[in-house]
């Protein structure tokens, strides 16, 4: 729905027009980010499809071009969400809260993509959907559930200030806990000697240059998608806030409480 049609459904079109007027110019920047993301994605897909076959994994290795960029993008998004949460607590700027929420929401989406592609990859390469030996997979799943909780907390609180503070605190608690969760799972894995496999990982594989270029293109595409989605989400949150403001009267609640009426004896 375009901002213009939204404003017509509101009670106070004068405020809405002003709100949307301040929001509208940004939409051009958002649209160009979206177009750029599409172009990059097409390029990445083409390069991934035409990259040479990997020796041991065959076609399944092409999942690398989705799995690795989505994992990196998820980390970037969640990291940005945490930085903006700290920023909110220091400066109490509502914009920081909106950006934080948007980044984490999109980060959860990319985390889900990472988990799904990781599982599909595992099915092809190891023969199982889930490998308890892969510490990163296990700790990413824990992270995923933690952030689902974060999103649930956001939805449960209606007062914007209360929501912003509590979510920022939760974000920070999560941030200090994530490394501890990761190490605990890593040590758990070393106890349970996992299979030594070629992991979907940049660091431990000597990668052919033929793979680096498509990977780079795919990563650029994912980051552009991230930027686009976060920008759209922030704009949506602002419009929602504007709708809420317009829908709520500036009349105090008490002014609308009348005497009992229509009682018959």
């Amino acid at each position: 729905m375009s901002p213009a049609t939204r404003s017509s459904t509101c009670r106070r079109p004068d405020t809405m027009t002003r709100e949307t007027a301040t929001l509208h110019p940004r939409s051009r920047a958002i649209t160009s980010t979206g177009v750029a993301a599409l172009c990059l994605m097409a390029t990445g897909l083409y390069m991934a499809a035409t990259a040479p076959d990997e020796e041991t994994q065959g076609e399944a290795a092409r999942l690398l071009f989705v799995h690795v960029p989505s994992a990196i993008t998820a980390y970037i998004a969640l990291g940005a969400g945490l930085v903006t949460a700290v920023w909110y607590l220091i400066r109490r700027s509502p914009a920081a809260d909106l950006v934080s929420a948007a980044a984490i929401e999109v980060g959860v989406l990319f985390t889900a993509i990472t988990l799904l592609t990781g599982m599909i990859w595992g099915r092809f390469v190891w023969g199982v959907w889930w490998d308890w030996g892969d510490a990163r997979m296990v700790s990413t799943a824990v992270l995923f559930f933690f952030y689902l909780g974060y999103l649930a907390l956001r939805r449960s609180i209606s007062d914007p200030r209360v929501r912003a503070v509590r979510c920022a605190v939760l974000g920070i608690v999560g941030f200090v806990q994530v490394p501890i969760v990761h190490y605990s799972v890593l040590w758990f894995r070393t106890l349970h000697q996992g299979p030594s496999i070629i992991r979907p990982d940049l660091a431990n594989s000597t990668m052919d240059a033929a793979f680096v270029a498509p990977l780079g293109a795919a990563l650029a595409a994912f980051i552009a998608i991230l930027a686009y989605l976060v920008a759209v989400r922030v704009r949506l949150a602002r419009l929602e806030a504007a709708v809420d403001r317009a829908a709520s009267t500036s009349q105090p609640v008490g002014a609308s409480v009348g005497p009992p009426s229509g009682l018959s004896v």
Binding site: D159, P160, D244, S248, G254
Partner: peptide
Amino acid sequence: SASGSVILR
């Protein structure tokens, strides 16, 4: 005001 409702002004 709280949760979008004005209580006092």
